[in-house]
Nucleic acid binder design. Sequence first.
DNA 1: TATTATAATGAACCATGGTTCAAGTTGTCA
DNA 2: TGACAACTTGAACCATGGTTCATTATAATA
Lengths: 195, 195
Amino acid sequence: MDNNERGGARRAARVDARQNRARILAAARVRFAADGIDAQIDDIAREAEVAVGTIYHHFGSKDALLEAIVHDRFQRMADHISSLRDEMDAWAGVEQTLRYIAERQVHDRALKAVILSQPALREASAAGMREVLIPAIRPVLERAQAAGQVRADVVAGDLPLLLAGLPGSAAEPTDRERYLEIILAGLRTGGDAAY
Amino acid sequence: MDNNERGGARRAARVDARQNRARILAAARVRFAADGIDAQIDDIAREAEVAVGTIYHHFGSKDALLEAIVHDRFQRMADHISSLRDEMDAWAGVEQTLRYIAERQVHDRALKAVILSQPALREASAAGMREVLIPAIRPVLERAQAAGQVRADVVAGDLPLLLAGLPGSAAEPTDRERYLEIILAGLRTGGDAAY
DNA sequence: TATTATAATGAACCATGGTTCAAGTTGTCA
DNA sequence: TGACAACTTGAACCATGGTTCATTATAATA
């Protein structure tokens, strides 16, 4: 149902199969980003120029496909955020992180949906956030907290949630910028001089 | 399809009909609040102790029923918020408003969903927000802005959105409190001394 | 009480959209 | 160049859940 690299298996995956798998992933990324969680398998198949059955051959279910996409997204995001860890200014790291997550969310409705989803449902995908994205955010955040630049009570998991209401791609860029500034100001250690 | 008060009609609505209508509304409120937008008509019917057909007799469609509920919710919220307009301290008015909307959202998943929904889809319900809730928030907000207590660039429509990521009813109350404080701090006129 | 407009019922209907699988293709290896 | 496992195909299948409507029941009126 799922053929990763060389398992203990015999034959290597056929090259056409690998191409198709890639086409499906690409199409799924596009459609999930545009239509959100309820993008349709048929649409993905059409866009990938592949039959529905092929998708099921490679991924087994719609949820599994979504999970693959989303997990990959979280992984890439985590990598990027980790690279911000030693931004010269700790605060800048936090700001960059926020802006980056915001930008990702605006371009990907499915991602946004998963971030918002109750941990109960959509468990497989939500796990990717808990175990990949959040751990990447944590050091960036804590560094800024240690420097007294961010409220001490904030937790890494708060950041994605705070961005949940970010105006979508239809809205004015200035609306998004204002939203971000409000959140950033809220996070920054303010007049109440916590430290 | 919808029998409001006395139209130009002849007979008054039968009392059992009125009771059933009320039962349906009550059940729908409960189920939409608990299950969100995709609460099932059959469940609502069961909870109201009424046949599905009766719901359709009174409301015509699931969307219409949802719209009725949501519009009513927005109306009540608007009324409550308006009563805060002349809170002695302008800032307190804003804070109360935020806390009130937050509390409503946590208790009602459908409400939260509508607030988050792209204005495109779910148009009928979203209109209720635009035309009832937002206008009620505006004076409270602008009063605090005039007093220099809230960022000048914030708009009434921002407030519900900022609360979109608020941790749901499953989360610790302290998580919600922290979230609120961050938003409040972000709105408050801060060190950058706008005025 | 007889009449009737209005309301209630719920099994059947239907659209949607994910999933299956028997039949046919094709890359790869010997 | 076979031979075969791996892969692809897409029509058919099925579950879900909103909606219809012919039938039956009942509140209101005369």
